[in-house]
Amino acid sequence: MPRILPQVLRNLLRKPATVKYPQVRVEPPKGYRGRPVVDPERCISCWLCIRTCPARAITISKETKKPSIWLGRCIFCGECAEVCPARAITMTKEFEFTTLR
Protein backbone atom coordinates (compact mmCIF):
# COMPACT_ATOMS: atom_id res chain seq x y z
CA MET A 1 0.00 0.00 0.00
CA PRO A 2 1.38 3.45 -0.85
CA ARG A 3 2.85 5.19 2.16
CA ILE A 4 1.27 8.54 1.50
CA LEU A 5 -2.34 7.25 1.55
CA PRO A 6 -3.06 7.95 5.26
CA GLN A 7 -1.65 11.45 4.91
CA VAL A 8 -3.78 12.11 1.83
CA LEU A 9 -6.96 10.92 3.52
CA ARG A 10 -6.14 12.96 6.62
CA ASN A 11 -5.65 16.02 4.44
CA LEU A 12 -9.25 15.66 3.26
CA LEU A 13 -10.44 16.45 6.79
CA ARG A 14 -7.84 19.08 7.56
CA LYS A 15 -8.09 22.78 7.02
CA PRO A 16 -6.31 23.67 3.77
CA ALA A 17 -2.92 25.29 4.17
CA THR A 18 -3.76 27.90 1.55
CA VAL A 19 -6.16 30.81 1.80
CA LYS A 20 -8.46 32.34 -0.79
CA TYR A 21 -6.13 35.22 -1.35
CA PRO A 22 -8.02 38.25 -2.56
CA GLN A 23 -10.83 37.59 -0.08
CA VAL A 24 -8.68 36.42 2.82
CA ARG A 25 -5.51 38.34 3.50
CA VAL A 26 -2.58 37.30 5.60
CA GLU A 27 -1.02 40.14 7.54
CA PRO A 28 2.78 40.33 7.07
CA PRO A 29 4.78 40.21 10.31
CA LYS A 30 6.19 43.25 12.09
CA GLY A 31 9.24 44.61 10.31
CA TYR A 32 8.09 43.58 6.85
CA ARG A 33 9.76 45.55 4.10
CA GLY A 34 6.84 46.73 2.05
CA ARG A 35 6.25 49.91 0.12
CA PRO A 36 8.45 52.76 1.39
CA VAL A 37 6.62 56.00 2.02
CA VAL A 38 8.13 59.44 2.37
CA ASP A 39 6.79 61.86 4.93
CA PRO A 40 7.51 65.26 3.35
CA GLU A 41 6.77 67.02 6.65
CA ARG A 42 9.67 65.32 8.40
CA CYS A 43 12.06 65.34 5.47
CA ILE A 44 14.98 67.72 5.94
CA SER A 45 16.12 67.45 2.30
CA CYS A 46 19.52 65.99 3.13
CA TRP A 47 19.23 63.62 0.15
CA LEU A 48 21.14 60.86 1.86
CA CYS A 49 18.53 58.41 0.62
CA ILE A 50 19.37 59.25 -2.98
CA ARG A 51 23.02 58.40 -2.46
CA THR A 52 22.31 55.25 -0.59
CA CYS A 53 19.65 53.79 -2.87
CA PRO A 54 21.23 50.87 -4.78
CA ALA A 55 18.57 50.92 -7.47
CA ARG A 56 18.62 54.69 -8.00
CA ALA A 57 14.90 54.72 -7.49
CA ILE A 58 14.67 57.97 -5.54
CA THR A 59 14.32 61.24 -7.36
CA ILE A 60 13.94 64.81 -6.20
CA SER A 61 11.03 66.96 -7.21
CA LYS A 62 12.19 70.32 -8.49
CA GLU A 63 9.68 72.49 -6.64
CA THR A 64 9.65 71.00 -3.17
CA LYS A 65 13.19 69.57 -3.07
CA LYS A 66 11.77 66.48 -1.39
CA PRO A 67 12.47 62.92 -2.52
CA SER A 68 9.93 60.68 -4.15
CA ILE A 69 10.32 56.95 -4.70
CA TRP A 70 9.80 55.38 -8.07
CA LEU A 71 8.29 52.02 -7.23
CA GLY A 72 9.13 50.63 -10.65
CA ARG A 73 12.79 50.58 -9.70
CA CYS A 74 12.55 50.17 -5.93
CA ILE A 75 13.90 46.84 -4.70
CA PHE A 76 12.48 47.20 -1.16
CA CYS A 77 15.81 46.78 0.59
CA GLY A 78 14.98 49.34 3.24
CA GLU A 79 18.36 51.10 3.06
CA CYS A 80 16.75 54.52 2.66
CA ALA A 81 14.58 54.02 5.74
CA GLU A 82 17.66 52.98 7.67
CA VAL A 83 19.82 55.87 6.58
CA CYS A 84 17.28 58.68 6.92
CA PRO A 85 18.35 60.89 9.88
CA ALA A 86 14.87 62.35 10.32
CA ARG A 87 13.04 58.98 9.99
CA ALA A 88 11.03 60.50 7.17
CA ILE A 89 11.03 57.28 5.13
CA THR A 90 9.26 54.27 6.61
CA MET A 91 8.63 50.79 5.25
CA THR A 92 4.95 49.93 5.33
CA LYS A 93 3.37 46.49 5.24
CA GLU A 94 1.84 47.19 1.88
CA PHE A 95 2.86 44.65 -0.75
CA GLU A 96 0.19 44.84 -3.43
CA PHE A 97 1.15 47.27 -6.14
CA THR A 98 -1.06 46.17 -8.98
CA THR A 99 -4.37 47.91 -9.35
CA LEU A 100 -7.63 47.18 -11.06
CA ARG A 101 -8.60 49.73 -13.59
Binding site: L9, N11, L12, V19
Partner: peptide
Protein backbone atom coordinates in the same frame (compact mmCIF):
# COMPACT_ATOMS: atom_id res chain seq x y z
CA UNK B 1 -11.63 19.90 -5.91
CA UNK B 2 -11.02 16.66 -4.01
CA UNK B 3 -7.48 16.53 -5.40
CA UNK B 4 -6.92 20.02 -4.03
CA UNK B 5 -8.10 19.03 -0.58
CA UNK B 6 -6.03 15.86 -0.66
CA UNK B 7 -3.01 18.03 -1.33
CA UNK B 8 -3.95 20.27 1.59
CA UNK B 9 -4.98 23.22 -0.53
CA UNK B 10 -8.35 24.68 -1.40
CA UNK B 11 -8.49 23.69 -5.03
Amino acid sequence: KVTGHMQNRIG
